[in-house]
Simulated assay, not measured.
Amino acid sequence: MGVRVSEPSGSDPVAIVGPGAVGLALAARLALEGHPVTLCGRSGSATVAEIELTDHQGIRTVAVDWQDDPARVSPFRWVVVGTKLHQRDAAHAWLEGLVDRDTVLVVAQNGVEHRDWVSPHAAGGQVAPALVHFNAERLGRGRVEVRQDGAGLVIGDDAPGRRAHALLERTGLGVQVVADFTTAAWHKLMVNAVANPVTALTSRRVEVFRDPSVRDLAAAMLGEVAAVGRAEGARLPDDAVDDVLAWIDARPSGAGSSMLADRLAGRPMEHDGLLGAVVRKARMHGIAVPLCAAVLALVAALDGADH
């Protein structure tokens, strides 16, 4: 299945799946650049809404269309998925109507399974995985604050990635194009697959990694993740574990994680798309990851008990 897509113009309609922090931020930035944006997700009864964006330029508001019924959408040339990993089932319902053979589908999520889970809707040549590095916080319905330092989005240097770059650079969030997206994705997953579940399990922020026993656990888990990543083709150096621990050490005092925030707020956590992806890939390669599997089981049980 081929894809016939021209470069985006400032007036091209864009569908954004997921009115969470990432979706709201991308929708607001694209709408401010003149793109007619349709935000797809729960909205109550509103069909037109305003997004209030807070960033380095202050507070701005922009109008978008808001659609809350997947049965009422038709295909878009440009579709961006900004849901969290545990919201894939809901996203599938939207993609069924939004995507056809001429769609470029940008999957702006954590993890390493971007193309895998959208494969029922789009061929690989239509899909542009994007790693989200900008920090966004949803302040309420239609309200989002964006904080960033450096490249906010990382995409691969392939055909769909180059198409997506033409759209994503309009967000002003900073787009880095990398030749080796696999390595970039697994390097980020090393952080997310360990820092997120450990902080969520302990209900503590990054200072928990200063405890010697927790640090030893994190280092061992990171070693397991790196082994699976290398089996998947990621070029992770021998000192990758030390690099990730140093990155965690450099976080400001009191910094938490998205999974900890979700637990404290009583929301479902995206453990399956992070640590679960590591365990799934490990089984495919016959690699033992006992610590990652054990922590995954504990976080899953915790998530189930909280809901």
Results as ranks from 00 to 15, higher is better:
L167R: 05
P212R: 11
V206R: 00
V99M: 08
V175K: 00
L217I: 13
A15P: 11
H35R: 08
V198L: 15
P70K: 14
L105G: 05
L296F: 12
I287S: 09
T61D: 04
D272C: 08
A130P: 05
L222S: 04
R162Y: 12
L131F: 07
P13Q: 12
V154Y: 07
H121V: 04
G20C: 02
D158C: 05
L260H: 02
A108C: 14
W66A: 10
S74P: 04
E270Q: 04
E113S: 15
D272R: 12
L291A: 09
A185N: 13
R263A: 03
P70C: 07
D12R: 11
L291Q: 13
L296D: 10
S9Y: 08
R115G: 01
M190F: 06
V154C: 07
I16S: 03
A21L: 02
T38D: 00
P19C: 02
L168G: 01
V104I: 11
V175R: 01
E270T: 03
Q109V: 09
L236H: 12
A130E: 04
W78H: 04
R88Q: 15
V214Q: 06
A195S: 08
A227I: 06
L236K: 12
S45N: 14
H285A: 13
C40E: 07
V241F: 07
L85G: 06
M284R: 15
G18V: 03
G18P: 00
V278E: 06
